[in-house]
């Protein structure tokens, strides 16, 4: 009897994991506030990136301010392959990444091990 209950609970947990990780969940998006000639976005690095998507305006110099509070060494670098940026993120310290907004398009960023992803959309 105990074993059957355990079996049912186990299967329920498997179902929950599948729904939680593979189900459709909206990613947080933020559009940069444009102040005169500069746009800034603060990104919190904790178990991923918040926001995960950043919308930037084309042609306006943009700065992304990353602050990593997450202690995981997994997230200690942020890499923008398209811009050749590989920035170390010391814990609890704001690091600024300057984005070239001349060309519109979608540019992904990732953590140093390519496990967490974020996206810059320039339009």
């Amino acid at each position: 009897m105990v074993r059957i209950i355990v079996l049912i609970i186990g299967i329920l947990i498997i179902g929950f994991i599948a729904w939680w990780f593979f189900g459709k969940h909206e990613s947080e998006t933020e559009t940069a506030a444009v102040a005169s000639d500069q746009q800034d976005v603060d990104i919190l690095v904790k178990g991923g990136y918040s926001p995960e998507q950043v919308v930037l305006k084309q042609g306006v110099p943009a700065k992304l301010h990353f602050t990593r509070t997450d202690p995981s060494s997994c997230l200690d670098h942020v890499v923008f392959p398209d811009f050749g940026i590989n920035q170390a993120l010391p814990q609890n310290q704001e690091e600024t990444v300057t984005i070239d907004t001349n060309k519109p398009g979608e540019y992904e960023w990732a953590c140093g091990m390519d496990m967490f992803h974020g996206k810059v959309i320039i339009k």
């Binding site: 939680w20 990780f21 189900g23 178990g47 991923g48």
Partner: peptide, 9 residues
């Protein structure tokens, strides 16, 4: 914190 974001590592 990644679990809350539907991520895992």
């Amino acid at each position: 914190s990644s679990f809350q974001k539907h991520h895992s590592n």
